[in-house]
Structures are given as C-alpha cells and as structure tokens.
Design a protein around this nucleic acid. Structure first.
Length: 225
DNA sequence: ATATCGATTATCT
DNA sequence: GATAATCGATATG
C-alpha cells in the first residue's frame, strides 16, 4: 500500500507470504514508567494493535499528556476513585472512560505505580484492518479522504478499534496477549509539534498536545497551532 | 472555514 | 442536578 502524502511512512505490515513472521515488538513497561510528557512525545509513530497476530493496526499521530494530581484537567486531579484507579496503578495499562453520553476514550497509564499520569490517544493513521474499522464506525470508504473519519479524534479511534470500558479498561497494553497493545515501528523520526490540549476548560494553556506535523489524520480545528 | 447545538449517561457535588 | 479529555449535523460567511 502507498500513502498518498509523503510522510516517510513504512508500509503497513501483516503476516503474509510476502512478509512472513510479521511480529512487532511490544513496548516494554519501562517505556511508560516516566513523565507523561516524555511518553507522549515518544508514542508518536508507534503502533496501536488489536489482536495477535494483529487484526487491526494503526500509527499513533496525535496524543495528549495528563499529568496526574497537579494537573487540574486530568481525571486524576481530585484523587483516586473507582473510575480513575487505573491511572494510579502500574504503567502501561488501558484507562478507558465514557464521555458525553456517547463516546469512549482510550488512555495509557504512565508513571510508576502509585503516581497518577496518563496519555490520551487523539488520532491514528489506519494501516491494516480498514474494512473492520469502517464496519465498527458504520462508514463506507469511497475515497482516501473518507479514511480520516475512521480514526481522527479520540471517540472515533476508540470506536474503530472496538474499545469499550467493559472490554478494555485495565488491560495490559504491553502484552500482545491482552488483545489491545502497543508496539514499536520503524518510522523516520517524525516532525513533532506541541500545542494546547483540545476540549478542556481547566489548565487549557499548557502545551501538552503532541502531534506529527502535516499528518492528515491529526484531529481538531486547523486553528489549533 | 468557523460557529453553534443537541445527543445521552457515568460520575461527582 | 451539573458537568464532561466528543461527534455529527446544520447554519452562516
């Protein structure tokens, strides 16, 4: 497959005769046991995968960092509750929440156990399993532009990957056996931009949104620089 | 291209 | 009872 824009992207991979033994390396737990700002930057260009071997694959192109108890915009700001307990647990686990009565959003816990912190996945570039993503989204793909509505936005990407709180909250994103996981990709070091976070009232001015510059799957208004 | 609005429910005050 | 880390549709420039 060829991407119509020039991103230096590697080709999508799945196990096949042409590409036997496709087996991306899961990100280790130590990757997530750090400040969310560093994790967020380093997650750009990595892969989100569903299944093993992967039935769905997509490249991470936009994320936001949430800093824990010192970040008024973070769900963990007011302390540990039943809803946000994953954020206070060990790093590398999925925190899934339901919002606006309509949408699920996917995060990964950061920082060592006991300290809250997380990354919100805001946009992906779909690589493999596009038909299934379109089914999950109830969309038909006619042109390359239609692909953007598959995974551009936190609610959209969660729906495309079939992410729900019941199914995925607390799942280990460092394990291929967990169903939903994160992996390395060989990707030319992306050109990264940092902006304010989208859709929040509190602490709205902090530069904690990280994105791959010029990637067409990045979400949000273009005015967000 | 930007603005506004309604949907719909888990969670917290 | 109010709010929310959103989306899709509609209206307007």
């Amino acid at each position: 497959m060829v991407t119509p824009w020039k991103s230096g992207a590697s080709a999508p991979r799945k196990a096949s005769k042409k590409n036997p033994g496709f087996s991306p390396s899961p990100l280790p737990r130590s990757f997530f046991a750090r400040d969310p700002r560093h994790v967020a930057r380093d997650l750009l260009g990595k892969l989100l995968l569903r299944g093993n071997p992967p039935r769905l694959a997509a490249r991470i192109v936009e994320v936001e960092a949430y800093l824990g108890e010192n970040d008024p915009a973070a769900h963990s700001a007011a302390g540990k509750t039943a809803r946000n307990s994953v954020l206070f647990g060990p790093p590398g686990y999925a925190y899934v929440y339901f919002i606006y009565g309509n949408h699920y959003c996917l995060n990964v816990s950061c920082e060592p156990e006991g300290k809250a912190g997380g990354i919100l996945f805001r946009a992906l570039e779909p690589l493999h399993g596009i038909k299934q993503m379109a089914r999950e989204r109830n969309l038909e793909i006619h042109t390359p532009r239609d692909l953007i509505r598959l995974t551009s936005g936190p609610g959209r990407l969660a729906q495309a990957f079939g992410v729900t709180r019941l199914r995925d909250n607390g799942c280990d994103l460092t394990s291929p056996h967990s169903g939903l996981w994160l992996a390395e990709d060989r990707f030319a070091t992306p050109s990264i931009k940092v902006t304010r976070r989208i859709g929040i009232r509190k602490a709205a001015d902090h530069p904690l949104r990280y994105l791959i510059a010029d990637n067409p799957f990045v979400s949000g208004p273009k005015s967000f620089t």
